[in-house]
Design a protein around this nucleic acid. Structure first.
Length: 456
RNA sequence: GGCCUGGUGGCAGAGUGGUCAUGCAGCGGCCUGCAAAGCCGCGUACGCCGGUUCGAUUCCGACCUAGGCCUCCA
């Protein structure tokens, strides 16, 4: 089944064809590790995790890189504030990031390149840019000369002239042109820095992605992804640097951008302060519901985060896991899980996860109604395409490590069973009310009584 | 001001030139000691105004409105 993907560069959905089907390359701009990430930061990783899974079913060898930017001024600021080396900060938050991503069911990327491990490549790329007339050194800085690259602005639909005319950035005196951006900047002794032909310094913001892409994936990659807020200037600058450093070679063939997560209708962002940390959310809610919520909207649209939306996602998963719990004794057919065609086709259509979720609901209905091994396998197999429904129903309904005293619950259920047997329904209902107070919901059926922890 | 997206039923959110999205919630019925779950059924949704069309939520134009980028940002 062919895959179509929207390409921000052409502004059209195009049939995806890698330049080398034997090695598909994809790069996602990862975090700058100076703090915990918020749930908006997790949208791209979740969405492109689904894309990576899709690509892996179509191509034998996919190389997916998601970088760690571990040198940046905010890291320096955090390190100075705590009075520790930057690696203390970057190590801490790199690990926190990995934990957060794993919590959301995101498979680790094939490669996790670190900016500080590519300083040599960064310096070499800057030297190439200077030699080829695309960059210049001034006062310990090296700047990219925007006028040297005619196609500058092509990705973001910007006009270089206007950028120059309307530049709101403070114009540093050493810039030839206000729109020029920094490739290398000097470090004072207390700041992290590396020796370079321009003195001791550190890389500018955009160059590390260009260097890591080239070093890890090659000069031309198939897919470059990130949040739409990175489109300008970050990705525009990456294109300029990489294209000029590689003699005009295409840098990334597909550019993919996820929409912003909003909260109260506004973009969730650190500068606005309206953020919810993944680290915290994972403790408050079932992680799978957070993942489902991030996939409920199309990746290019804005998606609004709310407690109500979390509750809806939990209810939806409750329904699906109920089906699986009812089919617990049905043995899955041996071998690999099936790939439901309708879900696959929804994802092949520019990653239409809402459509895929609608299909998953159909699969759940079907499994509930006919209860066969194949139907159960289709439901779990369909969930796997999105990274959902992969845990046991017990685990889902127990809501992870809960504080519920299971022995006490079982005891109350026995008492209620006896009360019902004596047709003492007042007593039975009182026990049920007691369980409700404990956060337990129960269901009577032919086999007995089943309980689950109420949604949180 | 420039560039770019959106405005769909109570909420979330796909999609389509003319029969169904889907999920959550709600209502009625069956089932149940009562619930829960399940099953059956229900609600005249497509910002506003024009235009094209036999027919527009879907195409075109204007308008209103929300948001994103233009500065760090996923």
């Amino acid at each position: 089944m062919p895959i179509s993907l929207y390409n921000s560069l052409t502004r059209h959905t195009e049939l995806f064809a890698p330049s080398d089907p034997a090695r598909v390359t994809m790069y996602l701009c990862g975090p700058t590790v100076y703090n915990y990430v918020h749930i908006g930061n997790a949208r791209g990783p979740v969405v492109f995790d689904v894309l990576a899974r899709l690509l892996r079913r179509h191509y034998p060898h996919v190389v997916y890189a998601r970088n760690i930017t571990d040198v940046e001024d905010k890291i320096n600021a955090a390190a100075l504030k705590e009075g520790v080396p930057i690696t203390t900060i970057t190590d801490r938050y790199t690990q926190a990031y990995r934990d957060d991503m794993a919590g959301l069911g995101i498979a680790p990327p094939d490669i996790e390149p670190h900016a500080t491990a590519h300083i040599g490549e960064i310096i070499a790329m800057i030297e190439t840019l200077i030699t080829s007339g695309h960059a210049y050194a001034a006062e310990g800085h090296v700047l990219f000369d925007v006028e040297s690259y005619a196609a500058y602005g092509a990705l973001s639909g910007r006009d270089t002239e206007e950028l120059i005319a309307g530049a709101r950035v403070e114009i540093a005196p050493y810039k030839k042109n206000p729109a020029d951006f920094v490739l290398w900047k000097p470090s004072t002794p207390e700041l992290a820095g590396w020796e370079s032909p321009w003195g001791r310094g550190r890389p500018g913001w955009h160059i590390e992605c260009s260097a890591m892409c080239a070093a890890q994936l090659g000069e031309t990659i198939d897919i470059h992804a990130g949040g739409v807020d990175l489109l300008f200037p970050h990705h525009e600058n990456e294109i300029a640097q990489s294209t000029c450093a590689h003699g005009g070679k295409v840098f990334a063939r597909w550019w993919m951008h996820n929409g912003m997560l909003t909260f109260d209708g506004r973009k969730m962002s650190k500068s606005l302060g309206n953020v919810l940390l993944v680290h915290e959310l994972l403790k408050l809610h079932p992680p799978e519901a957070l993942r489902l919520l991030l996939l409920r909207g199309h990746y290019r649209q804005p998606l609004d985060w709310s407690d109500n939306a979390i509750a809806q996602a939990i209810s939806t998963l409750d329904g699906w896991y109920r089906v699986l719990r009812d089919l617990e004794d049905v043995e899955l057919p041996s071998g690999k899980l099936p790939v439901p065609a309708r879900m696959e086709s929804a994802l092949c259509d520019d990653l239409n996860t809402p459509q895929a979720l609608a299909e998953l609901s159909q699969l759940a209905d079907h499994a509930r109604q006919i209860g066969t091994a194949d139907a159960k396998a289709a439901l779990i197999g369909g969930g796997a395409l999105l990274g959902l429904l992969q845990q046991s129903p017990e685990l889902w309904f127990k809501r992870g490590e809960s504080t519920i005293d299971e022995a006490h619950v079982e005891d109350l259920l026995l008492q209620r069973r006896d009360a019902r047997a004596e047709r003492n329904f007042a007593r039975a209902d009182a026990i049920r009310d007691e369980l409700t107070r404990l956060g337990i919901v129960i269901e009577d059926n032919a086999q007995g009584t089943r309980w689950s922890v109420v949604k949180s």
